[in-house]
Design a protein around this nucleic acid. Structure first.
Lengths: 242, 242
DNA sequence: AAGTGGTCTAGACCACTAT
DNA sequence: TAGTGGTCTAGACCACTTC
């Protein structure tokens, strides 16, 4: 059944992706764009947009003049760094059964680092939400999110365990559009190590990031720490401009 | 002057990017797509493709129904992780004057890890090129590239200091298409620390990656180590599927 | 020479934002 | 309601690979 929303392109993308994971293409060769367009009853442009997205996420590769092919190596990637949104989802993708524990959920005066990241003034307040994501009872990810208190709409913020982007939609009516992230290797301090269940000084990876909404306003300052022994991030690096 | 190659889209993109960095758009507002199309004498599709690339690399953002705007925050990013290709270029972008020193350039029997990454057999040989990238006389990046010896075309490989993708084109006639990379925090061992001019055990970031050519054949296994105090990597994380 | 992906056009209509 | 970006179509021609 063809409907708008999800877009035709996304439907086509999902359809082809399904055939890929079900290994329905002989020799890993995907049919020509013109054939796909005719078979699915859409324009070649729509097919090309869908294939473009699949190529970008590493599921396929294309060779001008030759054809389009399944990319087995790319399909192995579980967590694509550029697309990580919910850590529960990431853990699920790794085959874990994730759970969340909220450690902190309080309003504090902003610290200088967050004030700069979120363009706040000294003395402004932020809501600090600290959470741990666990697989079974093993902590894997520790996050600290800071949201300007001025953005909060009501005081009945019950679902503290929501993914932060859902929390922002629910209680601030802001839609998180993208993160600008910095990747930093860290030696976990006593507090962080305790919360992640490892020894102080253990090596870990961390993100320091600022989240923006559709109006390009900074709405969240996030810091995340990962157990490197349990979670590895991968990404595809391409030639600039491609 | 309008010519093919670079594509119209890339010419349009470069043109708009230049106007952005020269701050030629009042209020950071970029003209409507229809206007750009008419002014530049191309179709709206071409304009949209160009704007799409600029949006993807963080230079602009778009709001349906409202317009297209310059993204000041995104413009600040120097090294976009997904697009890093030459470390000399990265160091230049950070305002450094880079230089390269080749530490190793020899053929060895393949080790098990590389054999698996490049689908080689035990006993096959690889060319190992180890290089350090320096700013002035300070080491910043240490890389080790391993190329299957079977790919080498001749024996007069003089330019060992070429970026590895150029080396592969020059001496193997293979075009590097993309890297599949894993990000790993490390405590530098004695050898690595010495080559980077820091104390053993210093915290660093590393990439472990496999490079593929257009036929999706693995052609290089690379390991890189970075001085975290001198080089930070950033990236833009977006909602999956967007 | 035949087939395939890459680029580009011109135009239609929809969804959303601003006023 | 007017203006803007988002999606989609149908078709043309080019560049490259394969045989």
């Amino acid at each position: 059944m063809i409907t708008r929303n999800p877009s035709l392109t996304d439907q086509v993308k999902a359809h082809i992706k399904e055939q890929i994971v079900n290994d329905e293409f002989a020799d890993g060769r995907i049919p020509p764009e013109a054939t796909l367009a005719e078979d699915l009853g859409v324009s070649r442009t729509t097919i090309r947009d869908a294939l473009g997205k699949l190529e970008h996420e590493g599921a396929i590769y294309r060779k001008q003049g030759a054809g389009t092919f399944v990319n087995q190596a790319g399909l192995q990637i579980k967590s694509r760094l550029e697309e990580i949104w919910s850590y529960e989802q990431v853990l699920e993708d790794h085959g874990y059964k994730p759970s969340v524990r909220v450690l902190t959920d309080e309003i504090f005066p902003v610290n200088p680092e967050t004030a700069e990241a979120l363009q706040l003034d000294e003395g402004d307040e932020v809501l600090v939400i600290e959470k741990v994501f666990l697989e079974n009872s093993t902590p894997v990810v520790l996050t600290r999110n800071r949201i300007p208190a001025a953005l909060l709409l009501g005081s009945d913020r019950k679902r503290k365990d929501l993914p932060i982007y859902e929390y922002l939609e629910e209680y601030c009516d802001r839609r998180l559009s993208y993160y600008l992230s910095e990747i930093v290797p860290v030696s976990l301090d006593a507090d962080q190590a305790a919360k992640l269940g490892v020894k102080e000084g253990t090596l870990g990876l961390s993100f320091v990031e600022v989240g923006y909404d559709q109006n390009n306003e900074a709405i969240v300052h996030a810091t995340s720490y990962f157990r490197d022994d349990l979670l590895r991030f991968r990404l595809i690096r391409r030639r600039a401009g491609a």
